[in-house]
């Protein structure tokens, strides 16, 4: 029998640390995390320092990122609730709830945001726009969340827990919920780039963020219509970088956290 405390220096690392290591071992994810952290710092610094085209682009980033974060979190929560409720309510409810969700993911849903922007008029508030953006992001999150939960509920260790006579409430609290955290985080993350994209597109068309609030999309749209390549460069680059980072991290989370690579496997 070999020594479990063998030559591997990480043998004591827990499954959470291992998941983190797997995430940062994925290069786009590591780069994405760095970029996101740098962007946050730069946007914060830009708000303080201000001024110039760079300062303006960073200030616009503050609006875009805040909106994306708000709408993305809302969409993630909604999607998780949707997927979780579908799994919890039994097979028939699951079919009834997930068929529309799956159908919605194939539609150009992002266009619902400019539609809402147009119908709400120029005096639209941020809150209703954020709600619409959250609704746009939710179906995709719901579909992924449902698949992950189904995969989790099929895993063998839940049978072992049952064989140990552990009551259902404790099984849910101690075994099911902790194991949903990482895969559902990966599912939830996908709402962020979706919300940012929807907002940028709508703002670019002049139908997104309310008037007076300038996001990256607003700045890009104005520069494109004016044919001003210089004014376009800053916000376009920052938006591209943010989207790339969000996707990279999301990809890494999917690879590192989801059922295809069960947590803690070597």
């Amino acid at each position: 029998m070999h020594e479990p405390a063998g030559t591997d220096p990480h043998w004591r690392d827990g499954p959470w640390q291992k998941a983190g290591q797997r995430l940062t071992a994925h290069r786009p994810a590591a780069a994405g995390l760095t970029v996101l952290a740098a962007l946050m710092l730069a946007v914060a610094a830009g708000l303080v320092a201000g001024g110039g085209p760079v300062g303006a682009a960073l200030a616009a980033g503050h609006q875009s990122l805040s909106f994306a974060l708000l709408a993305g979190l809302g969409g993630a929560a909604l999607g998780l609730l949707w997927g979780g409720a579908a799994v919890a309510l039994g097979e028939r409810a699951e079919r009834m709830m997930m068929t529309p969700a799956a159908a919605l993911t194939g539609l150009p849903l992002a266009l619902a945001l400019p539609l809402a922007g147009g119908l709400l008029g120029p005096e639209r508030g941020l809150a209703p726009m954020a709600v619409v953006a959250a609704l746009i992001a939710a179906p995709a999150v719901a579909v992924i969340a449902r698949d992950e939960l189904r995969a989790l509920l099929r895993r063998e260790f839940l049978s072992a827990v049952q064989a140990a006579g552990i009551p259902n409430g404790r099984r849910l609290r101690r075994h099911i919920l902790p194991n949903t955290v990482l895969p559902l985080a990966a599912a939830a993350w996908t709402a962020l780039p979706r919300a940012l994209m929807a907002e940028s597109l709508a703002s670019l068309l002049g139908l997104g963020l309310p008037e007076g609030v300038t996001g990256w999309g607003t700045a890009i749209g104005a520069a494109a219509r004016a044919g001003d390549a210089v004014a376009l460069a800053g916000p376009a680059l920052l938006l591209a970088l943010t989207l790339w980072a969000l996707h990279g991290v999301g990809d890494g989370m999917r690879l590192a956290f989801t059922a295809s690579t069960p947590g803690g496997r070597r």
Binding site: P15, W16, R155, E156, F157, S159, A160, V161, A163, A164, G165, R174, H175, P178, N179, P262, G263, G264, R265
Partner: peptide, 20 residues
């Protein structure tokens, strides 16, 4: 009864909760 009746699973690794 579960005290008396226990089981060994085909994939013992998968039969342990990976987080505990």
């Amino acid at each position: 009864a579960r005290r008396d009746l226990q089981i060994l699973f085909p994939d013992p690794l998968a039969a342990f909760d990976p987080l505990m």
